[in-house]
Simulated assay, not measured.
Amino acid sequence: MRTFDFSPLFRSSVGFDQLQSLLDSATREANAPSYPPYNIERLGENDYRISMAVAGFADSDLSIEVNQNVLTISGKRTEAANTTYLHQGIAGRSFERRFQLANHVEVKGAELVNGLLHVDLERKVPEQLKPRQIAINTANGATKSKAIEGTLAAAE
């Protein structure tokens, strides 16, 4: 019942198709399952880590894929055919989690430690897209402008 109509936002915008799809996917993801639990950490200015609780999964049971700024982590545990449980409290069901990555975010690597899958991410913004200072030239070709003294400006 909770649907939002973003069409007024898109009536006066051009070229924001990706934004529209992000908003649509965000509203769809609101009802997504919460298994397995995960954390997203900021380790530095350009470094991030996704930590996912995958107890009972071996590295061969997990799959990590990046395709068009979407990181997909999935797991499918292989059960031994002759195992009989009296009580099974550890969830081992298959899962698939998708994370939308911002532009210029790359996956550096992944490791499985003590039942936690750590996926390290780094934002690498190209030099041409980084902010830069622009020198302001004056009419005589100098790159610095002179400050006007307060008393001289008032006298004129």
Rank of each mutant, 00 (worst) to 15 (best):
M1T: 12
T3P: 01
S7H: 09
S7T: 15
P8E: 11
P8G: 07
F10A: 10
F10E: 04
R11T: 12
S12L: 09
F16S: 08
D17E: 15
L19W: 15
L19Y: 14
S21H: 11
L22Q: 07
A26Q: 04
A30T: 15
A32R: 15
S34M: 03
S34N: 12
N39K: 12
I40M: 06
L43P: 05
G44L: 06
N46L: 04
Y48S: 08
R49V: 01
I50C: 07
V54Y: 08
F57R: 01
F57L: 00
S60L: 00
S63Q: 09
S63G: 05
V66A: 05
V66G: 02
N67H: 09
Q68G: 03
N69G: 01
V70N: 07
L71F: 00
I73L: 08
S74R: 05
R77Q: 14
R77A: 15
T78M: 11
T78F: 03
E79K: 05
E79V: 00
E79S: 11
E79A: 11
Q88K: 15
Q88R: 13
I90P: 00
G92S: 06
G92E: 08
R93D: 10
R97N: 13
R97T: 09
R97L: 12
L101D: 01
L101I: 07
A102S: 15
N103W: 10
V105W: 01
E106L: 14
E106F: 13
G109F: 10
E111P: 00
E111I: 01
V113W: 04
V113T: 11
L117C: 06
E122P: 02
R123D: 02
K124S: 06
P126C: 08
E127G: 01
L129N: 07
K130T: 03
P131A: 04
R132C: 03
I134Q: 12
I134W: 06
I136C: 07
A139I: 13
G141R: 09
T143F: 01
S145G: 13
K146P: 00
I148R: 11
E149D: 12
E149R: 12
G150L: 14
A155R: 12
A155S: 11
A155D: 10
E156C: 00
E156L: 10
E156T: 11
